[in-house]
Structures are given as C-alpha cells and as structure tokens.
Amino acid sequence: MKTLMLAAVIAATLTTGISNAKADDYVIDIEGQHAFIQFKISHMGYSWLLGEFTDFEGSFSYDEANPSAAKVSVTIDTNSLDSNHAERDKHLRGEDFLDTASYPEATFVSTSYTPNEDGTAALTGDLTLHGVTKSITIDVSEVGAGNDPWGGFRRGFEGSTTLTLADFGIDYDLGPAARTVEMYLSIEGVRQ
C-alpha cells in the first residue's frame, strides 16, 4: 500500500520537464486539495479495495523547452492512508502491511523523465516504501497549464503505475490477485 501512494505522487509530478536555466518550480497544491495519491488493490480476487493517502507534500520543476530535464520530489505520510473503513485502515497501517510506526514516510525522487511525442512521458525515480528503495516508472500525461483566478500559474499531471508489494517487503498473503497494487496520481502544482 505504501508503494501505491509514493508511485501516485511521483507519477503526476514528473510529467513536467525542467532545465536548470529556464525551469519553473512548482509546489504541489495540497492546501486546496488539488492533488491526490490513490490506490486500488484486489480484495482476494472478489472485489476492489480503493483508498488514498491524504497527507503528502512535494514539488517539481518543468521547462517546456526541455521537458526531459523535469524533476520531482514527494514525501507521503504513510499513516494518512484512508480506505474509508477505520478498522481496515488500522490493519493496513500495522505490521502486516505499511508498518507506519517503523516507516512513517514514503518518498519518491525522480531520476529521469522521458517525454513521448504524444504528450505522455515515462517518469522514473526511486521510491522508498516500507524501508525499501526501488526504482519505479510512472506513466505520465500532462493535464494542462495556465493562469488561475488568484493571479498564479498552475500546471497539472496525472500518472499511474503498478507496484509489486513483495518488492517492498510487504508479503501478507491476500491471494494471488492481491500481489500488486495500482497507483493513480493526480497532481496540480502552483508555480513559485
């Protein structure tokens, strides 16, 4: 589950490109709740369990003239997991899954951004979840960019990735259909 949140946050932000000279820096808009890190995992092959991480922060850089230089960094409070069921959330935060007492944060730091001609991109970076750091790739697409009604400028991306829980040391057996978790990220950044 930890892998979900990190992947989601990273994917959305890395879709933007940056260059050191011309890159714009953005802060992910969590105050206005315009950013989401969500997950979806099979419940024993019978249904889907959906949830999100409600407390995270991050930033990204993007340069339209040099998108391949984009960078992103996200930190997630793993204890903010919310699946809309208090007892289940307690279990998911416990030692069988995220072990938030030992691993209170998950992080994603990008290492590369590879844009495609169709406006999509592959965002690769290091996800640290449950005390394990692995390279993951997030499929990203830009949603849009422009001026907002408050005198600022915003840029948004969405992304998705699939994480294998055992890769991050989470091996609680919920059956073969629940070995991976789908992460979805929707990120809106405010230019600084």
Rank of each mutant, 00 (worst) to 15 (best):
K90D: 15
V72T: 14
S110W: 06
Y46L: 12
T111V: 12
A65D: 15
P67T: 13
E117N: 13
N84V: 05
H91S: 10
P115H: 08
F97A: 04
F97I: 06
K71L: 04
E87H: 11
L81H: 05
A101H: 09
D89W: 03
V109T: 15
S73K: 10
H130W: 03
S59F: 00
F60D: 00
A65G: 13
G58P: 00
F53K: 00
V74Y: 07
D63Y: 03
V109W: 01
P104L: 11
Y103T: 02
A69V: 00
W48Y: 11
L50N: 11
L81C: 12
L49H: 01
H130R: 11
D77H: 07
L50C: 04
F56N: 01
R88G: 08
H130V: 03
R93L: 09
S59V: 00
V109L: 11
G131L: 02
N84D: 14
E52R: 08
S102Q: 15
S102N: 15
S102T: 14
A69L: 06
G119H: 07
S80R: 09
N84L: 07
L129T: 09
S59N: 00
S83R: 02
T75Q: 11
L49W: 02
E64G: 07
D96W: 04
G94N: 08
D89T: 08
D126K: 12
A86I: 08
V72C: 10
F60Y: 12
D55W: 00
D118Q: 10
E64A: 14
N66E: 13
L49I: 04
D99P: 01
D126Y: 02
A101Y: 05
W48S: 13
T120H: 04
E52V: 00
K71E: 09
E57H: 02
K71A: 11
L49N: 07
N66D: 14
P104S: 13
T120R: 05
S73E: 11
V74R: 01
T114A: 15
S110I: 09
D63L: 07
D82C: 05
E95G: 05
G94T: 01
N79W: 06
K90V: 14
T54H: 00
S110A: 15
T111A: 06
H130P: 01
W48C: 03
T120E: 03
P104M: 11
A121I: 02
H130Q: 06
A122S: 12
S59K: 02
G131W: 02
D89Y: 04
K90A: 15
S112N: 10
T124M: 07
V72W: 02
A65L: 13
T124C: 08
H91Y: 09
F108N: 05
K71G: 12
I76A: 14
S47L: 07
D82T: 03
D55M: 00
E95T: 13
A106G: 15
